[in-house]
Write a protein that binds this DNA or RNA. Structure first.
Length: 471
RNA sequence: GGCGCCGUACCCAAGCGGUAAGGGAGAGGUCUGCAAAACCUUCAUGCACCGGUUCGAAUCCGGUCGGCGCCUCCA
């Protein structure tokens, strides 16, 4: 039984068959770095990380490319509007390059704390303008473009399959129902490949091109960079569900028009994180960042666990109540594995029993069924609670499963080291409480316990003695 | 207006034709000086509603109601 993925192209479940045996080439749309990523954005990167880990678990060697969009996305209207980078720069008094650097760093810091594996190749749009120009020239040579009002447009009527993935009916497309149509366009759904005319003056990011000084349109970077690093045809392209209709539809048109080949075999799209019944967006006033969660005392991995509790193709309902549930579940999971470590003295069983093998198969069938993480977590918990499985085997399975879940279960914090970190005052209190308990002075011991709780230390008296843990 | 998706317990959420996974919360119990933790037990004759197909439907079909998204930059 192999890996099955839901392909947006054709809207059906398909067995994953890579172009090159044993290798998976993946392109994922990355961040636009004019602001912080919010946790809704981050959900998509967690989904892509799970895809990576499942492919690795299934034995594929991965080449994963992610772009960083540091130019070219506009704030409003179809093909006008102010460049978001420029707007952000103007508002904060920094240069566009500073803005890009700052938010790129912030993004990768978030990614790292969520234990997301970094793609093999991360590429910035501004470093690849030459590649984009080459691609536009190719499209021009093949007759897919026209120049109007100073800008280079892609003519969608020249590309027969336009809108195939999005299930767009070209005859019934209603452009302009919500926005003003750019009068330079022959077809309202044509899109810009290269701008030389912007209605905003003093554009800071400009490059020379055969069509004049300007900047690239906002779909061309993904086509240019993916083909540069992964070839004209590759296996998987993923991104947020909102990209299906416009961004990915246009990318397909320009890429396949240029190469004359099928560009991508499998399209995977992650659903939205919703909050109070609507998608997370700054304009809706429900914009939460990972920093906000950290300030509230959550571990980034609490959010990762939360995301794993839902399927990537379903909307996930965010609330702090649910996040609390995820935090508790994650901490319990970590504690259980820690306990297994202690019980098995860290020795994993190298051989699995029939029962253990069954759990492994169950887990695999979950993740191979279009990355069904909720199913995989359910198997994980059932395995941990199985009273007929020995600790070493449970530990071994846990560490295997965590290759996919990425909850850092194998990073066992040495409790002795933690004790070293405790300052003397706390250690003295713990000792003092032990003395009090021995002499049956329970009022004293209880007051010390509450004092420690104020300091963030929780005490538990087990049959094997008193243990403590940081809250 | 066009198109796509969804509605499962107090909360989150799997299941997608064979008789309701998992987590969190809640309840009871064992243990404990008391707690906490751990462990055990318990928690939807029911899957928005109404019809239909079927030996059998949360799962398929039709309708109704409710919600979300895309068609504008957007994860």
């Amino acid at each position: 039984m192999g890996l099955k993925l839901f392909n947006t192209m054709g809207r059906e479940m398909q067995e994953f068959v890579p172009i090159n045996k044993g290798e998976a080439f993946v392109y994922a749309c990355g961040p636009t770095v004019y602001n912080y990523a919010h946790i809704g954005n981050l959900r998509t990167y967690i989904f892509e990380d799970i895809l990576r880990r499942v492919l690795e678990f299934s034995g594929y060697k991965i080449k994963h490319v992610m772009n960083v969009t540091d130019v070219g996305h506009l704030t409003d209207d179809a093909d006008s509007g102010e460049d978001k980078m420029e707007k952000s720069a103007r508002e904060t008094g920094r240069t566009v390059w500073d803005i890009a650097k700052f938010y790129t760093d912030a993004f990768f810091s978030d990614i790292e704390s969520l234990n997301i594996e970094k793609p093999e190749i991360v590429c910035r749009a501004t470093d690849h303008v030459g590649d984009m120009i080459d691609l536009i020239k190719k499209l021009e040579d093949k007759g897919y473009t026209y120049v109007s009002g100073g800008n280079v447009y892609f003519s969608i009527d020249k590309f027969a399959d336009y809108g195939k993935m999005a299930l767009l009916d070209r005859q019934n497309l209603q452009a302009g129902s919500r926005i003003e149509v750019d009068s330079n366009k022959r077809n309202p759904h044509d899109f810009v490949l290269w701008f030389t005319k912007s209605k905003f003056e003093n554009h800071a990011m400009l490059w020379d091109s055969p069509w004049g000084k300007g900047y690239p349109g906002w779909h061309i970077e993904c086509s240019a960079m993916s083909m540069k690093y992964l070839g004209e045809s590759f296996d998987i392209h993923c991104g947020g569900i909102d990209h299906i209709n416009v961004h990915h539809t246009n990318e397909i048109a320009q890429s396949e028009a240029a190469s004359g080949k099928k560009w991508v075999n499998y399209w995977l799209h992650g659903e939205f994180l919703v909050m109070n019944k609507s998608k997370m967006a700054k304009s809706a006033g429900n914009f939460i960042t990972l920093s906000t969660l950290k300030e509230k005392g959550y571990d980034p991995l609490d959010y990762r666990y939360f995301c794993l509790s839902g399927h990537y193709r379903s909307q996930l309902q965010f609330s702090f109540e649910s996040l609390d549930a995820a935090r508790t579940a994650r901490v319990n999971l970590v504690d259980r594995v820690k306990a297994l470590n202690a019980e098995a003295l860290g020795a994993v069983s190298d051989k699995l029993s029939d029962k253990g093998t069954l759990y492994l198969e169950d887990f695999k069938s979950g993740i191979e069924d279009d990355l069904n993480c909720p199913k995989a977590l359910a198997v994980f918990w059932t395995m941990l609670k199985d009273q007929n499985l020995e600790a070493g085997e449970k530990l071994s399975l846990s560490l295997m499963f965590d290759k996919v879940t990425g909850l850092e279960l194998s990073v066992k914090k040495d409790e002795k080291e933690e004790i070293e970190e405790l300052d003397d005052n706390i250690r003295r209190l713990i000792d003092e409480r032990e003395e009090a308990r021995k002499s049956k002075d329970f009022a004293r011991s209880d007051s010390i316990r509450s004092e420690l709780k104020m300091l963030g230390i929780e005490i538990k008296d087990t049959p094997d003695g008193t243990v403590w843990k940081k809250l």
